[in-house]
Design a protein around this nucleic acid. Sequence first.
DNA 1: CTGAAAGCGCTTACAG
DNA 2: CTGAAAGCGCTTACAG
Lengths: 340, 340
Amino acid sequence: MKKNVSMKDIAQRLGVSTALVSYVLNGQLEDRINKDTAQKIKSLAEELGYRPNHVAKSLKINKTLTIGLILADISNPFAASLARIIEDEAKKHKYTVIFGSADESAHKSEDLIRTLMSRRVDGFIIAAPEGSEELLSSLKKQDIPFVLIDRYFPELHVNTVTINNFQASAEATNHLLEQGFSEIGMINLKADLFHLTERSRGYKAALTQAGQKKEGKNLKEVEEKNMIAEVHQAINELLNQPEPIQAIFFGNNNLAIEGLIHIRSLNIRIPEDLAIVCFDESNAYNLFYCPITYIRQPLAKLGQAAVKLLIESIGNQERSTNNITLEAELIIQKSSQKYI
Amino acid sequence: MKKNVSMKDIAQRLGVSTALVSYVLNGQLEDRINKDTAQKIKSLAEELGYRPNHVAKSLKINKTLTIGLILADISNPFAASLARIIEDEAKKHKYTVIFGSADESAHKSEDLIRTLMSRRVDGFIIAAPEGSEELLSSLKKQDIPFVLIDRYFPELHVNTVTINNFQASAEATNHLLEQGFSEIGMINLKADLFHLTERSRGYKAALTQAGQKKEGKNLKEVEEKNMIAEVHQAINELLNQPEPIQAIFFGNNNLAIEGLIHIRSLNIRIPEDLAIVCFDESNAYNLFYCPITYIRQPLAKLGQAAVKLLIESIGNQERSTNNITLEAELIIQKSSQKYI
DNA sequence: CTGAAAGCGCTTACAG
DNA sequence: CTGAAAGCGCTTACAG
């Protein structure tokens, strides 16, 4: 391995100080440096293939220009797209991203954060798994800049960038009501995650507003670990009760995919026999026979806002807290429209 | 922001040298250090919440224990799964992953590599975009350890971890032949990427071996940038020629998805009217009415092998070159089986 | 068993 | 306009 060229090498060859080399190569103090000397330094740096050592710089300035990105699960396309946007946006601000997938485990998430703290990232963007409250408030206590994205915990007074899950779900439910469906079921994940409970709440609020009494009777919450079987069962129950449902609202894309597979196997036609709305997009909808109505999250805006907020937070001494809420969009397709 | 505790702080409080603190906290020289002193150091470190500064360590040892991961496109689920596996595997070896998405641009890829080199990553795992040959041989010339994954360039004598694309495609084609289909079309991307041309070559070789003369007549190669329209056109041509095809082999999952959408819109039934095999999995197949036969790449093995190879390469002075080829698996489902 | 010291490659007040 | 010097937080031969 060839030795890397350092500023010192350049300085020695030219008989100048490393200070000067540093100033020139960083474009600082340009007006008070001899043009000739500056040019010589630049040429030699180019010639020797000088690459700045960011590690040394980080140590000196006590900043790494690095963001730690903790995702609940990178293999989820939603998370992957977000990762890409965040990386892009970070680069615009000269930041680099180190990422880790917490696999929905608070323990793994803590482990990751510990590792990345050793590596002195300047701050974190976190899609937190269930049970992270303690970890997050400890981060806050240590004055480590971070921003929660997608998931959040209302009791924690921290930076967040999220969508209005309540509003989006209410809107989706209202859309179904407007289409003339009154018996609307919802299948959601049973989890202590605010963004999910907000979705259930939005659904129920819309039903209440429409004058329905037992607004929770058609809401089914399934366990993540037993998801497939419970989704099937939930659908069966909703369809076979005294007042069968006319529409289903799925709380996320994975639930929707399993649900649609099951519905097709029952030979139930969409939208003729049953209307469908899903939270979140999925590539998979493309190959379903009926175009699916879904709630689209503004991914690019979410990612960009998170990076912007984090960088502001890194720059500020007083830790003010910011909560950014973005609106999702209901993309209406055939699956939710009353068959004419 | 609280000041971070350093080894020096601990040393001063205890009246010992930082050297001793370093040895104890790294578990070195354990047999020749006073147990009491060691215990005191450990306790105080714990009490003060000492976190090692990896940046300083990296500077000193001239290693960052960091891998740069360059993916052609992170928003592709294939890449995202790979990223997760690589991150996991790297962590087992105490390595951290910094990633970047090159978005299929050689220029962006070069930019990313430059950035990550400044950050002194120890090596790279790269899924290279078209046109990267020059960049890669320059990396090789600079003795920077790297491993190509998925994509590779046969003329470059560098480390690779790939699947046997030729073999997998031949196997898929043979499977269709065995099912009794003789007129088999293939739709592939037109690109100067070895892993893609190998897929075409495998398809043609299987046809030749089966005694077919003009083995390229049913091979359609489409441009990435005009993919949707060209896939539609290719399918139309293959179906409307004098000897219409009985089966289509898609060269990757994105082609397959567009193709299946178009085939459904033509009211062509799978597998009754047309058999289908696809290269690569996709979540989307789940919602297609007919289970799809596809070639599954051994993602976990690919990722693990790449990390292992890279770390060996980082450790070795003499840069020996290793080419690891893994076999893919044909998952046979209804879409490719002759309707009985 | 332990410490003094050099040095990794930078940045940045300070002095001239 | 330019240089000498300190220092970021570690590791590691070396000396005792």
